[in-house]
Simulated assay, not measured.
Amino acid sequence: MEDIKIDSSLSFGGYNWRVLDIQNNRALIITEDIIEQRAYHDAYKDITWADCALRKYLNGEFYDKFSATDKSRIIPVINRNPDNQWYGSKGGADTQDSVFLLSIEEVVCKYFGDSSSKLHNRGKNQRYWFERKDENNSKRKSKFEGYGWWWWLRSPGRVSVKAVYIHGDGNIGIQGNNILKGNISDGECKGGVRPSLWLKL
Rank of each mutant, 00 (worst) to 15 (best):
N59P: 01
I104M: 06
L58E: 00
I22H: 07
R158A: 15
Y15K: 11
D114R: 02
D42K: 09
V99N: 05
R55Q: 01
A39W: 01
I179W: 07
I30Q: 15
I184P: 02
A50C: 13
G148C: 04
G173A: 10
P76C: 03
V107H: 01
Y147F: 06
I22M: 14
A27E: 00
S103R: 01
K90F: 08
I29P: 00
S9L: 14
S117A: 04
Y44H: 13
D83I: 05
F112C: 05
K110S: 15
D169G: 06
S103V: 04
T69E: 13
L28T: 09
Q85R: 14
L20P: 08
A50I: 03
V108G: 00
V161K: 00
I172L: 14
P156E: 12
S196K: 03
N137T: 10
E61I: 07
F62H: 05
D7N: 11
I75E: 03
K162E: 06
V108K: 03
G91R: 02
R80D: 14
D21R: 13
Y44E: 15
S72A: 15
P156H: 00
Q126E: 14
D42W: 02
R38A: 10
E2V: 06
D83A: 14
R194L: 10
T69K: 14
P76T: 08
V164Q: 05
D51S: 10
G146S: 08
